[in-house]
């Protein structure tokens, strides 16, 4: 009842909440937001189409759930298996590859596990396990977390299941995980984009990079209007079309921090 009263009262407080004319909501990941890609991409999209985009940055799992509930028009995430499940459930219209970046294994600059410079992520994870070096896991069902679990699986290990005491699941976003591993002197898996734009790198360094297993694919999907009729299908589709168009792909490729390209467009031509 109080909600109703609040709502009625708030209705009088014009906060511009109903300014929904040309606006879409995108459920995306912390990596795309924290890396600053959206700050670069969205103004270009707005200039082209006049559409405002509101980004909810969550872990991939949570972003997909937000879309499942019908609280977003488009999902833009990076966990292919979870995305395909979302599609199979009928919540998405069609999935498009957009771009990739890669994951890097970040660790203390002092490199206690002695794996720095390795190009073999699987071997490095085995070393971490053998030396019981502290390792921070996102533990939040994000795309990065799912990728990390896949890598442990490829190494034939299951520290999460074994509840190893050197393996810390923190249940937070990428930046928080970087802050945590810095404080704990632990290794962790990060997407490169967040790592490059992360402001508190001192004391941390890349230990392992360049393994093809660290490939990180992003996909985009329109939320199915058949499931959620209020989805702004036309405007949402315009965003999907834009990011996979030659123009959108170039904008993505042009995004650089400190001279480094963060995302590599690879939409099907």
């Amino acid at each position: 009842m109080r909600f109703l009263i609040s709502a009625l009262t708030i209705a009088c407080l014009t906060l511009g909440a109903q300014a929904q004319d040309k606006t879409i909501t995108i459920a995306s990941t912390t990596s795309t937001q924290d890396s600053g890609l959206f700050n670069h991409l969205l103004p270009a999209f707005k200039a082209k189409t006049g559409i405002d985009v509101k980004v909810i940055a969550q872990g991939t799992g949570q972003a997909l759930d937000t879309a499942r509930r019908g609280d977003a028009d488009v999902v833009f995430v990076h966990a292919k298996a979870a995305e395909e499940k979302f599609l199979a459930e009928g919540f998405g219209v069609k999935r498009f590859d957009v771009m990739y970046n890669d994951f890097v294994l970040v660790g203390p600059a002092a490199d206690p596990a002695g794996i720095k410079g390795s190009k073999d992520i699987v071997a490095s994870l085995k070393t971490i396990q053998a030396k019981a070096s502290p390792f921070v896991s996102r533990g939040d069902k994000s795309g990065t977390h799912l990728a990390e679990l896949d890598l442990w699986k490829a190494a034939g290990l299951d520290p999460a299941g074994a509840k190893a005491d050197w393996y810390k699941e923190i249940g937070q976003g990428m930046g928080a995980a970087l802050n945590t591993s810095k404080a704990m002197g632990a290794y962790l898996l990060s997407d490169r984009a967040t790592w490059i734009s992360f402001k508190g790198k001192d004391g941390l360094a890349i230990a392992v990079e360049g393994d093809t297993k660290l490939f990180n694919q992003y996909g985009v999907m329109l939320v199915n209007p058949a499931k959620h009729p209020h989805v702004k299908a036309d405007l949402g589709q315009a965003f999907v079309d834009y990011v996979i168009s030659a123009e959108g792909q170039k904008v993505i490729a042009d995004y650089r921090i400190e001279g480094q390209q963060l995302f590599f467009p690879n939409a099907a031509k």
Binding site: A7, L15, A17, Q20, I56, D71, H228
Partner: peptide, 23 residues
């Protein structure tokens, strides 16, 4: 949420929703 009882109001992720929660 769109899947919730008041989903049709379209208020989630708006300042109004924030006012409601804080209220």
């Amino acid at each position: 949420s769109r899947s919730g009882p008041l989903g049709s109001w379209g208020l989630l992720f708006t300042p109004t929703a924030m006012v409601m929660a804080q209220a």
